[in-house]
Design a protein around this nucleic acid. Structure first.
Lengths: 297, 297
DNA sequence: CGCTAGGTGCATGTTATTTTCAAATTAAAA
DNA sequence: TTTTAATTTGAAAATAACATGCACCTAGCG
């Protein structure tokens, strides 16, 4: 992902560059799309510097040379289909904010994909796979995430429930012990009631996996903290993205558990849909549909 | 997007190429990521052909020369970070399936972003903005989506509820009329109970927005059908993606409604978090945190 | 069997990139 | 202010990469 931020990193490095190198930097920042088709001579003359300076500029940014730089730039521009944070203007058309919302979602997914620590996820999967019971706790916007998670783990034949009521959580919490696992989900990592419940279950020796930003009370309290750090909230981005990110991370956990418990289970996720088929309405006039491409509602 | 299909187009052109050019093609197809950092000499020797052949190969594919080809290839690879459908092998490492799950999610988002019909979305937003009450109906995996949606619309001061119990749906359904809107969410578009409820509310003149695949009974029954068609289910992809896609589409609707009801509401989505602050735990030893970057749970 | 056309690689020419080194500029000290 | 050292910059040469012309080879056809 170093290419992803190339332009940004040029801008950052800008002050540390030499005067004539800055000229190059300026030109590149202004016309990145031209640059990738330019030869070093062209770029040098356009930026009013000599060719060696261009090379030095590339080296200063830790590239092997001009070619390497150009290649990386090209990649950056291609991948960088601005999956950036968005900010909504009240005069955006539907088309525009639709794009913005999707792009920012995608950008956040890309970030978390990079960020997600594999080892932490592995140990989370381990403990989930061994658990006697799994409970998901979360409030507000995280409540539906918990429901969904419990639903998913159920299919893996893992005994699981979700609670978004602090009393229910507390009641359930005291019945858990070291054989169980709690997954605490929070966008803030600072919800008092959730922290309270987590303290309860930790006292009983239960493993607590957290899904929340790092350096938060919840993250600190968890046995296995999975950090979900979004970029600073530009507008509504955080609001919308976190729950989706939580869902996707839970998908990763679920698949991991499924694979651990036996390859058959992966199929089990799929086969359940058959038992649900009777709940479905087939098209009346059409011949029988091809094996449905869908699954449980 | 011509770069997007570069590898594919090489494969297509393959039979039309000369024998030695095919050797080049084969090598490129097998090691695209190496190629972009190779010099023409390396590629030539790796593919066991001469350098001119490599150039001819590039020309045959309508590029100016080797450089041009390499650049385009690099771009293609960058954008094309195979956001393709995945298929899980039971021997995948955590790292591997993590990537697969995220990539397939991103791929699906990109697809739906393209696919989502702006006009349909606009009219959905219109009716939602005018509605007296909005109700979200869905079962199984779609139930949490409904809860989340209701939650979100609540913040827009739109009176909304979600039901994932067929009886509750039916009871509530008969109380609606043409001033109300129902959003029916389904991954299959064929859930009998949901179809039944939809029939009830349609009889009362209520607008029904559906989120489900096209050409399904639900989609046909809806007043405003929003089509969510995923690629044929490769493994678990559909299973995991649809609910996330539904959530994101609902985000789009919610933002649209917020913008329609008045720009203040966009802020309202954000300001609610203040009222929730008291539910949070601040770090005990640290000075007061900077204005929290988070929001309601 | 020989001829022709298309395909291939060698060797060379051309162009682009990198390095070297000296000039110039700037900063620092006297 | 002048001198000196250090850093920055560009000119030119060297190197490496790429493209092209041409000759050779192979295969297909008469």
């Amino acid at each position: 992902m170093n290419s992803f931020n190339l332009l940004k990193s040029i801008a950052e490095a800008h002050p540390n560059l030499r005067k004539s190198e800055q000229k190059v930097a300026d030109f590149v920042l202004e016309n990145p799309n031209e640059v990738i088709h330019m030869r070093i001579v062209d770029l040098a003359s356009e930026a009013n510097v000599s060719e060696p300076t261009v090379v030095r500029f590339c080296r200063a940014l830790n590239y092997d040379g001009f070619q390497d730089f150009k290649l990386t730039l090209a990649q950056g521009l291609a991948s960088n289909t601005n999956f950036e944070q968005f900010s909504l203007n009240s005069k955006d058309t539907v088309m525009e904010f639709k794009e913005k919302i999707f792009d920012s979602m995608i950008g956040n997914l890309l970030n978390i994909k990079e960020q997600l620590d594999t080892e932490t996820v592995e140990s989370a999967i381990d403990s989930l796979a061994k658990a006697r019971r799994v409970e998901f706790y979360g409030f507000g916007a995280s409540a539906p995430v918990c429901t969904d998670a419990a639903h998913k783990f159920h299919r893996l034949k893992v005994s699981s429930t979700s609670y978004s009521d602090p009393h229910m959580q507390a009641i359930s919490a005291v019945s858990l012990d070291e054989r169980d696992v709690v997954v605490a989900i929070s966008q803030t990592g600072r919800t008092k009631d959730l922290l309270h419940t987590v303290k309860l279950v930790k006292d009983a020796g239960t493993t607590v996996i957290s899904l929340c930003p790092s350096n938060t009370p919840l993250s600190d309290a968890a046995t296995i903290p999975i950090h979900i750090d979004l970029e600073e909230d530009k507008d509504l981005s955080t609001l919308m993205s976190s729950r989706v990110l939580h869902l996707v991370v839970i998908d990763v956990l679920a698949v991991g558990v499924a694979m651990k418990l036996g390859p058959g289970l992966i199929d089990h996720l799929k086969t359940i849909k058959r038992s649900l088929r009777s709940l479905r309405q087939n098209d009346k006039r059409l011949p029988l549909r091809k094996p449905s491409s869908s699954e449980e509602e």
